[in-house]
Design a protein around this nucleic acid. Structure first.
Lengths: 221, 221
DNA sequence: AAAAGTATGTTGAAAATTCAACAAACGGAG
DNA sequence: CTCCGTTTGTTGAATTTTCAACATACTTTT
C-alpha cells in the first residue's frame, strides 16, 4: 500500500487526514488494490454498487450503453480521482454505468459499507472521510453541470468548441491533449463521429484551430 | 418556523434528526424563510453560491442560459427538496445557474458557512447533517445520470419517449402530469419546441400516447 | 363577455446531422 | 521493414432538426 501513498495523498477523499493515519485507515476500511489490463471491465452495468473506486495508475472511462447499443461516455478518471462514489453512497441496487480500464490500470476498491455504516462514531477520521466524500460529490455535481453546458449546444460545431474552450481553460493553455480518440469524443459530445471529423477539418481550414489526433491547439483570431 | 415542520421532516437534509431538535437546529443554522412571487429570481447566475435552498411551498426551476441566450432547464424542485447544495458545498465563487420561482413559493435559505465551518464538532446533529448532505448529493448525481440518459438520445422522438417512460416509471402509472409546458419541455430535452409539438402529434396519431398540455397518458401497444 | 396575451400546433424551406461506405493515415507486431 | 488491424477523414444521399411564420386553442385581465 505504501507505494501508492503519494497518489492517495492527492485524493479528495483523504484530504486533511494525517499521512501516518492513512495507512491504518485503509486497512480498517478493507481497501484492496486490483490491476486491470487495457479495455478490461472494472464495474459492470446492472451489478450492485458496492465499491468506491480510486484510480492509482492508468485511467478509466465511465460509459453508458443504451437499449440500442449507443454508447455515451460520461467521463474519464485519472490517477487520484474517485469513481462510482455516487452510486455507492446512494446505495442503489445496481449501477447504471460500466467502468472500463483505458490502459493498464491499478485501482483501489473500498467497500462503501465500511465508510457508511461501520464505526462511524468511534474513529474521528471517519467524520473527516464523510466530509471529504460530501465535498467530492459536490464537485462531481459541478462536473455534470459543465458537461450539460457542453452537450446542450445544438450543433456539432458548438459542442466541439464549447468542449475545447473548457479544456483550454482547464489546462490554462491553448495547447493541450484530450483523453479521447475521435469516436470517444463523439460519444462524449453526443454527435456523429464522421460529422465531428468533418467539423474539425472545417475549423482547421478556417484557421480556428490545429489538431492532430488527440492533440489540439486553439488559435486566436 | 413551526408551520413548516411537516415539510421539513420530509427533507433529505433532516433525516434521522429528532423533531424537537430540528427547530433549535434551524435557529442555530440561521435559517430564514423568504417568499417569492411567480417568475421571480431566487438565485442569479454569477452571484456567490452562499445559500442552500429548500422549497417549502410552490416550486422552483433550475435554468442555465448560455452566451447566445439559449435556455436549458436542468430541473424542477418540489416542496421538501433541496437546491443549490452542490455549489454551496463546493464553495464555488459563483453559481453557473439561475433559480426562479415557478409559482408563488416559500423558500428556506441556509448559509452554507453555518453547515460547513461552524461548530461542526460541538453539535452531534451537525455530523448527521453532513451525512445527510452527502446522501443528498449522491442522489443528485444519480438524477443527473438519468437526465443524461434522456438527453443523450439523438432524435426528438427518442428523447421524448425516454423522458415519458422514465416519468411513467417514477409515477408508477401510465397516466401523469409533467411539470413543464411545451417550451420548457423542449428546453429540458434540448430540442426545438415546434419539432417537439410535431412529434407529440405524430405519436398521438400512431396511438402511442395521448396528451393534452401537461397531461400525458402512455398507451400500451 | 370581450379583449389581450400566452401557449400550442402546423407548415415548408433551409440547414445540419446521420448513415454507410470507402480511402488514407497511423501504429504495433512480427 | 512490411503487414495488418485500427483510427481518421471524406463523400453524397437520406433523414431530422431548426427556423420563421402563422392559425388555433387556451388563460387571464378588464
Amino acid at each position: 500500500m505504501k507505494k501508492y501513498l503519494e497518489i492517495l495523498k492527492k485524493c479528495a477523499l483523504f484530504q486533511n487526514i494525517e499521512e501516518e493515519k492513512l495507512l491504518t485507515m485503509l486497512t480498517c476500511l478493507g481497501a484492496q488494490v486490483i490491476s486491470f489490463d487495457k479495455k478490461y471491465t472494472i464495474l459492470t452495468e446492472g451489478k450492485p454498487a458496492r465499491y468506491i473506486g480510486i484510480v492509482l495508475t492508468g485511467s478509466v472511462q465511465i460509459i453508458q450503453i443504451d437499449y440500442f447499443g449507443n454508447r455515451s461516455i460520461l467521463g474519464n478518471v485519472l490517477p487520484s480521482e474517485v469513481f462510482n462514489e455516487a452510486f455507492a453512497c446512494a446505495e442503489v441496487e445496481s449501477v447504471p454505468v460500466t467502468v472500463i480500464a483505458n490502459e493498464p490500470s491499478e485501482i483501489m476498491l473500498i467497500d462503501s459499507d465500511h465508510i457508511l455504516h461501520t464505526c462511524s462514531n468511534n474513529c474521528g477520521f471517519h467524520q473527516q472521510l464523510i466530509f471529504n466524500l460530501m465535498k467530492d460529490l459536490a464537485q462531481k455535481t459541478i462536473q455534470f453541470h459543465r458537461r450539460i453546458e457542453i452537450t446542450s449546444k445544438r450543433t456539432t460545431r458548438e459542442k466541439l468548441m464549447a468542449y475545447l474552450l473548457s479544456e483550454a481553460k482547464r489546462h490554462n493553455s491553448a495547447y493541450f491533449d484530450i483523453p479521447f480518440d475521435r469516436q470517444e469524443l463523439a460519444d462524449y459530445l453526443e454527435v456523429e463521429r464522421s460529422g465531428l471529423s468533418a467539423e474539425i477539418g472545417k475549423l482547421q481550414k478556417e484557421g480556428v484551430l490545429e489538431s492532430h489526433r488527440k492533440h489540439f491547439k486553439l488559435l486566436q483570431s
